[in-house]
Amino acid sequence: MIVPLEHVLFLSTILFILGLGCVLARRNLIMILIGVEIMLNAVGLTLVGASAFWQQVDGQIMVIFLMAMTSAEVSISLAMVVYLNRRKGTVDVRAFDEMRG
Protein backbone atom coordinates (compact mmCIF):
# COMPACT_ATOMS: atom_id res chain seq x y z
CA MET A 1 0.00 0.00 0.00
CA ILE A 2 1.48 3.31 -1.09
CA VAL A 3 -0.46 5.61 1.18
CA PRO A 4 -0.24 4.54 4.81
CA LEU A 5 -3.54 3.77 6.55
CA GLU A 6 -2.89 6.49 9.12
CA HIS A 7 -3.05 9.14 6.43
CA VAL A 8 -6.29 7.83 5.05
CA LEU A 9 -7.83 7.75 8.51
CA PHE A 10 -6.54 11.21 9.30
CA LEU A 11 -8.00 12.60 6.10
CA SER A 12 -11.36 10.97 6.60
CA THR A 13 -11.53 12.20 10.20
CA ILE A 14 -10.91 15.74 9.01
CA LEU A 15 -13.50 15.32 6.31
CA PHE A 16 -15.98 13.92 8.82
CA ILE A 17 -15.45 16.77 11.28
CA LEU A 18 -15.79 19.31 8.50
CA GLY A 19 -19.06 17.71 7.45
CA LEU A 20 -20.29 17.58 11.02
CA GLY A 21 -19.40 21.21 11.55
CA CYS A 22 -21.25 22.08 8.40
CA VAL A 23 -24.35 20.17 9.51
CA LEU A 24 -24.32 21.73 12.95
CA ALA A 25 -23.46 25.27 12.08
CA ARG A 26 -25.37 25.98 8.90
CA ARG A 27 -29.05 26.94 8.88
CA ASN A 28 -29.56 26.42 5.18
CA LEU A 29 -31.11 23.06 4.41
CA ILE A 30 -29.04 22.53 1.30
CA MET A 31 -25.84 23.26 3.14
CA ILE A 32 -26.82 20.77 5.82
CA LEU A 33 -27.40 18.14 3.15
CA ILE A 34 -23.98 18.87 1.68
CA GLY A 35 -22.52 18.43 5.13
CA VAL A 36 -24.20 15.04 5.40
CA GLU A 37 -22.75 14.07 2.04
CA ILE A 38 -19.28 15.03 3.13
CA MET A 39 -19.65 12.90 6.25
CA LEU A 40 -20.85 9.98 4.20
CA ASN A 41 -17.91 10.29 1.89
CA ALA A 42 -15.57 10.43 4.84
CA VAL A 43 -16.96 7.12 5.96
CA GLY A 44 -16.65 5.77 2.46
CA LEU A 45 -13.02 6.83 2.30
CA THR A 46 -12.33 4.98 5.53
CA LEU A 47 -13.94 1.87 4.18
CA VAL A 48 -11.90 2.01 0.99
CA GLY A 49 -8.71 2.62 2.95
CA ALA A 50 -9.42 -0.23 5.30
CA SER A 51 -10.26 -2.49 2.40
CA ALA A 52 -6.96 -1.74 0.77
CA PHE A 53 -5.12 -2.21 4.00
CA TRP A 54 -6.48 -5.67 4.75
CA GLN A 55 -6.68 -6.73 1.12
CA GLN A 56 -10.35 -7.55 1.48
CA VAL A 57 -12.96 -6.64 -1.07
CA ASP A 58 -15.86 -6.20 1.37
CA GLY A 59 -15.12 -2.56 2.14
CA GLN A 60 -15.17 -1.61 -1.50
CA ILE A 61 -18.46 -3.40 -2.11
CA MET A 62 -19.83 -1.53 0.85
CA VAL A 63 -18.76 1.75 -0.68
CA ILE A 64 -20.48 0.95 -3.93
CA PHE A 65 -23.65 0.28 -1.98
CA LEU A 66 -23.08 3.49 -0.13
CA MET A 67 -22.81 5.46 -3.34
CA ALA A 68 -26.01 3.99 -4.68
CA MET A 69 -27.84 4.75 -1.51
CA THR A 70 -26.43 8.24 -1.30
CA SER A 71 -27.60 9.10 -4.75
CA ALA A 72 -31.09 7.87 -3.89
CA GLU A 73 -31.06 9.74 -0.66
CA VAL A 74 -29.91 12.97 -2.28
CA SER A 75 -32.59 12.80 -4.90
CA ILE A 76 -35.31 12.30 -2.28
CA SER A 77 -33.99 14.92 0.09
CA LEU A 78 -33.57 17.48 -2.66
CA ALA A 79 -37.14 16.85 -3.76
CA MET A 80 -38.22 17.47 -0.18
CA VAL A 81 -36.17 20.63 -0.03
CA VAL A 82 -37.92 21.89 -3.11
CA TYR A 83 -41.26 21.03 -1.58
CA LEU A 84 -40.42 22.73 1.70
CA ASN A 85 -39.22 25.77 -0.13
CA ARG A 86 -42.52 25.93 -1.94
CA ARG A 87 -44.47 25.73 1.30
CA LYS A 88 -42.67 28.37 3.30
CA GLY A 89 -40.67 30.25 0.72
CA THR A 90 -37.46 29.61 2.57
CA VAL A 91 -34.90 26.88 3.13
CA ASP A 92 -33.97 27.98 6.62
CA VAL A 93 -34.40 25.02 9.02
CA ARG A 94 -35.53 27.30 11.84
CA ALA A 95 -38.78 27.85 9.99
CA PHE A 96 -39.67 24.18 10.16
CA ASP A 97 -40.42 23.49 13.85
CA GLU A 98 -44.00 22.17 13.70
CA MET A 99 -42.89 18.95 15.37
CA ARG A 100 -42.07 20.63 18.68
CA GLY A 101 -43.78 19.09 21.74
Binding site: L24, R27, I32, V93, R94, F96, D97, E98, M99, R100, G101
Partner: peptide, 8 residues
Amino acid sequence: KLTTGQVA
Protein backbone atom coordinates in the same frame (compact mmCIF):
# COMPACT_ATOMS: atom_id res chain seq x y z
CA LYS B 1 -39.34 20.96 26.26
CA LEU B 2 -36.55 18.89 24.71
CA THR B 3 -38.50 18.41 21.55
CA THR B 4 -38.12 21.91 20.17
CA GLY B 5 -38.80 20.96 16.59
CA GLN B 6 -35.48 22.55 15.60
CA VAL B 7 -33.46 20.20 13.42
CA ALA B 8 -30.28 21.86 14.52
